[in-house]
Simulated scan of single mutants.
Amino acid sequence: MKVVVIGGTGLIGSKVVSRLTEHGHEAVAAAPGTGVNTLTGEGLADALRGAAVVVDVSNSPSFEDEAVMEFFRTGTANILEAESEAGVTHHVALSVVGTDRLQESGYFRAKQVQEEQIRASGVPYSIVHATQFFEFAKGLADGLTEGDTVRLPAGRIQPVHSGDVAAAVARTSVGAPVNGVVEVAGPEAFPLEEFIRRGLAAENDPRKVVTDPRARYWGAELRETTLLPGPDAHIAETRFGDWLARQK
């Protein structure tokens, strides 16, 4: 089966391509570096020719409100149009647990628009909602740093290893469309502050980490459970502490 992976050279996409290839599928990495640009539509028709499934794990290079909205709205429209012309029978997209609860954030508003476009397209689909990746602890901290202090909102998080997300996306892509959402999360939930503090400590990063009731998560206010998955989520096996130990 031919599966085109949009964003197939990135953190998740490259792992999805590898897993699908290992299982005997024709997995094609589609990205600007391979001649496919979803914003302009360049290379999409050629890449999708003969494809049964399209997996979109691409992400905006900018998190500025207008830029991220343009990336997801225009890119998704172009992908869905090309899929319709190519006869693709399953669209799989990677999104984020809590997207609909984080609409104060420009990034999550754009992700919500992407999901709505997929639902309205008429192409059978599956949307995979993942919690925050282990690998993004430092990036999240960087965005919330003032001086030498990381100021975090209160709330709990259930982070997941990128490899486990890729496995869930690959598994979903070769199954029947669910025409709904599948959630994947790590096996442990703990305060956001603990997640960031442990991630930075593992890199000997000296920044102070505190919970600040005024802090926002990518511009959005958090509740205790905003970032947590529902009861039917697939729970991955990799534990955060074990992953951190392997990074040394």
Rank of each mutant, 00 (worst) to 15 (best):
V113I: 15
V113F: 09
V113H: 05
Q114L: 13
Q114R: 14
E115A: 11
E115N: 15
E115D: 11
E116V: 00
E116M: 09
E116N: 14
E116Q: 15
Q117S: 10
Q117V: 04
Q117G: 05
I118K: 07
R119K: 13
R119V: 05
A120V: 01
A120P: 00
G122H: 06
G122Q: 13
G122P: 11
V123T: 15
V123G: 10
V123Y: 08
V123Q: 09
V123I: 15
V123D: 08
P124V: 12
P124S: 07
P124N: 07
Y125P: 02
Y125H: 13
Y125S: 08
S126N: 04
I127R: 11
I127M: 09
H129R: 12
H129G: 01
H129P: 04
A130V: 03
A130N: 15
A130L: 11
A130P: 14
T131I: 08
F133E: 00
F133H: 09
F133S: 02
F133K: 03
F134I: 14
F134W: 07
F134Y: 15
F134T: 12
F134Q: 13
E135C: 00
F136D: 04
K138S: 10
K138R: 15
K138T: 13
K138E: 14
G139S: 10
G139C: 01
G139N: 11
A141G: 06
D142T: 00
G143P: 00
G143R: 02
L144M: 15
T145A: 04
T145P: 01
T145N: 01
E146K: 12
G147Q: 01
G147Y: 03
G147S: 00
G147P: 02
G147E: 04
D148E: 13
T149D: 04
T149S: 03
T149Y: 06
T149R: 09
V150C: 08
V150L: 08
V150K: 05
R151L: 03
R151E: 11
R151C: 06
R151Y: 07
R151K: 15
R151P: 12
L152I: 10
L152F: 11
L152M: 09
P153D: 11
P153C: 13
P153W: 14
A154D: 12
G155P: 09
